[in-house]
Structure formats: structure tokens, C-alpha cells
């Protein structure tokens, strides 16, 4: 039986190697595609009120605009939202009153909501931190996804509804942040709605029962 030549053996080996690398590349492309797809999938949109709810215990701030962010204290993606919020606070000082409401479910201990994210938020000067007991405030403002931001003007009209990140947990420049900065600087007065990327603030069953 004739033995295969070294050259043909090498060529076959090279072909197999090339095919293997190609297969590997395809697999990785799929993997990265799935990952990006997940990161770019926004959370449930809020049924946000067009005006600041009068019955809410949460009071609007003294500045021209009042911003309320709803966040899940354990959501890793919301670290990027808080970071972008802090950047906005630094970029437009004295223009926007900022409040962050962390979900604090009933029936859990007080330590449940005392996360690093909450401690980070408390450490940001000018940012008011509120523990939203059993998500009552979120219900009042129609927020469903961690990272949801609502901005109202001095007259109580909603001027922004959305998130401050361009993807899940993606820190850095994004459309919502740029718009709010423009509002604060008086460069625009038009309202804007953007997707929100983050964990669900409450269980699906609770959300379904939410009016």
C-alpha cells in the first residue's frame, strides 16, 4: 500500500488546521454576537407619568430640573448608570436636582438593600438617596427597569424618560446623558425617550400586577 507523501500529509494537516481555525472563528463570532445581543437588549420600558405625581411622597427638587433614577441595589449593570449620573452631576452642577431610589423589597432585612452600589451613591455629593420601600415610588413613577431615569422641569412636566447607558452596564458617553446635559445647559427643551438597560426592578408577577 503506497504511503502518503510527506507533502500531501502536511497539506492535509494544514487544511484541517485551517478548517479548525475557521470553525473556531465562527463559533466565537456567534458567541460574541449572542453576548452583544444580550447587552443591547433593553429592559421593560416605564409607564412614566407625564407630570410629577402630586400624591407621591417624593418631592421635586429646588433646581430647574428634577431627576429621579430608579435602581436595583444588586444590579451590576446599574453601576454604569450611576457612574454616568455622577458624570452628569459634575457636568451640570446646580441645574438638576438628582434623586436615586433603590428598590427595598418588603419582607427582606434592612441589610438586603445595603449594597456597595447604594454606598457608592450615598458618597456622591448632591445626590439624594432614597430607599424605595417595596417599590412604591417605582410604581408611582411607572419604573420597571433598574437604571430608569425620569426628568421633570420646574413645572412638573416630564422632559426625559429612559436610561443613561448605551448598553447593559456600558459606561461612557450615551444619547440620554448627552440630551440631559443639553437640557441643563439650555441647549434644548424637547423631550426624549431612550432605552433602559438593566435588571428588572421587581418580579414579573409584580410587574404584571402593576397598574
Amino acid at each position: 500500500m503506497p504511503r502518503p507523501s510527506h507533502r500531501s500529509g502536511t497539506a492535509r494537516s494544514g487544511w484541517r488546521l485551517g478548517a479548525g481555525i475557521a470553525l473556531w472563528g465562527g463559533l466565537l463570532a456567534c458567541g460574541f454576537g449572542a453576548l452583544v445581543s444580550y447587552e443591547m437588549r433593553p429592559g421593560s420600558r416605564a409607564d412614566a407619568p407625564l407630570r410629577w405625581p402630586r400624591e407621591s411622597k417624593l418631592q421635586a427638587g429646588p433646581h430647574r430640573y428634577s431627576l429621579v433614577m430608579f435602581a436595583h441595589p444588586k444590579c451590576p449593570c446599574s453601576r454604569a448608570s450611576l457612574a454616568n449620573l455622577e458624570s452628569l452631576l459634575v457636568a451640570a452642577p446646580g441645574e438638576i436636582s438628582m434623586t436615586i431610589c433603590f428598590y427595598d423589597p418588603a419582607g427582606e432585612t434592612s441589610e438586603w438593600a445595603e449594597t456597595r452600589l447604594v454606598r457608592t451613591a450615598r458618597a456622591i455629593p448632591g445626590l439624594k438617596v432614597v430607599l424605595d420601600r417595596d417599590g412604591q415610588l417605582a410604581v408611582e413613577f411607572g419604573a420597571k427597569t433598574s437604571g430608569q431615569v425620569l426628568v421633570f422641569d420646574r413645572d412638573g412636566r416630564q422632559v426625559f424618560d429612559g436610561g443613561l447607558t448605551s448598553a447593559r452596564g456600558h459606561e461612557g458617553e450615551d444619547q440620554g446623558g448627552r440630551h440631559l446635559l443639553a437640557l441643563a445647559r439650555g441647549e434644548t427643551r424637547s423631550p426624549l425617550s431612550t432605552p433602559v438597560y438593566g435588571c428588572a426592578l421587581r418580579e414579573k408577577s409584580a410587574l404584571a400586577a402593576q397598574p
Binding site: H72, K74, C75, P76, W112, G135, C199, A200, E203
Partner: peptide, 17 residues
């Protein structure tokens, strides 16, 4: 360490990361 879990209210799931 950074993103061990994703949350749905009080229900945690393993984070996609």
C-alpha cells in the same frame, strides 16, 4: 466578582457575563 448575578426583583439569576 463584578457581575455574578442578574436580578429580577428579589430573584437572582446567574449573570450572562
Amino acid at each position: 466578582i463584578v457581575s455574578p448575578k442578574a436580578w429580577e426583583g428579589r430573584i437572582p439569576t446567574t449573570h450572562i457575563h
